Amino acid sequence: MSKLQVLENKKLKLVNVFTKELRGIQIEDVEKEIKKFINFLEISQIQTRGPLITKKAGTTVHDNGDITIDYDIMVQTMKKMPNNGSFRFHETISVENCVYIHFEGTNDELNYAHNKLNLHLWENDLVESGDEYMVHLSLNNNWLEVDIFKPVER
């Protein structure tokens, strides 16, 4: 049996979602922004449930060769939160008709999961929406466990 199995028609449903929206951010700044978000949650004593979720919502290649992305960092909270600046609150986020893969391995091996998803999309003539959600289940040293959801058009 394959280490990585792609499943279709999966649904991602999140409730009480507190989101930090990052627009036009340099790829190399994403990790720093995630750490800042986690620190903000701890300092603000925001009660969360479940793991960190990230959403890549688009990539832009600029005329000068720079690459920026639109990226959201999310957590599910125990209660409703106010919208404030680049922070948004959504009572529910429901993403249907996704291809899905569960990955466990090192950060360096994560590209295998992305490649397998992309190959599955190509082999099955599926058209992705452009969004990608990653549910970060665990991270211990360099070992990680993530669920990846890519919505596809019907």
Rank of each mutant, 00 (worst) to 15 (best):
S2P: 10
L4W: 05
Q5T: 13
N9L: 10
K10M: 00
K11L: 08
L12N: 01
K13M: 11
K13L: 09
L14C: 06
L14V: 02
V15S: 15
N16P: 10
V17Q: 02
F18R: 05
T19F: 03
T19V: 15
K20N: 01
I25F: 01
K35C: 03
K35T: 02
F37I: 03
N39E: 14
F40W: 09
F40G: 02
F40E: 09
L41W: 05
L41S: 01
E42P: 06
S44Y: 07
Q45F: 12
Q47K: 15
R49F: 12
G50V: 10
P51M: 06
L52E: 11
K56D: 04
A57G: 14
T59H: 00
T60E: 04
T60F: 15
T60L: 10
D63I: 06
N64S: 06
G65M: 00
G65A: 03
G65W: 07
I67C: 09
T68K: 14
Y71A: 03
Y71T: 01
M74H: 06
V75H: 04
Q76H: 06
T77W: 09
T77C: 00
M78H: 05
K79H: 07
M81G: 03
P82K: 11
N83D: 14
N84K: 07
N84Q: 15
G85M: 01
G85S: 04
F87V: 02
R88A: 06
F89L: 03
T92E: 09
I93L: 05
S94M: 08
V99M: 00
Y100K: 05
E104P: 02
G105K: 07
G105S: 04
T106N: 11
T106S: 15
D108W: 09
D108I: 12
E109T: 08
H114P: 01
N115T: 06
N115M: 06
N115W: 11
N118P: 10
H120P: 10
W122A: 15
W122E: 12
E123P: 04
L126H: 04
L126S: 02
V127Y: 08
S129G: 08
G130S: 11
D131V: 08
Y133S: 00
Y133M: 02
M134N: 04
V135Y: 09
L137G: 10
L137C: 07
S138C: 12
N140Y: 06
N141M: 14
N142Q: 15
L144Q: 10
E145K: 12
D147T: 05
P151R: 00
V152Q: 01
E153D: 07
R154P: 03
R154A: 04
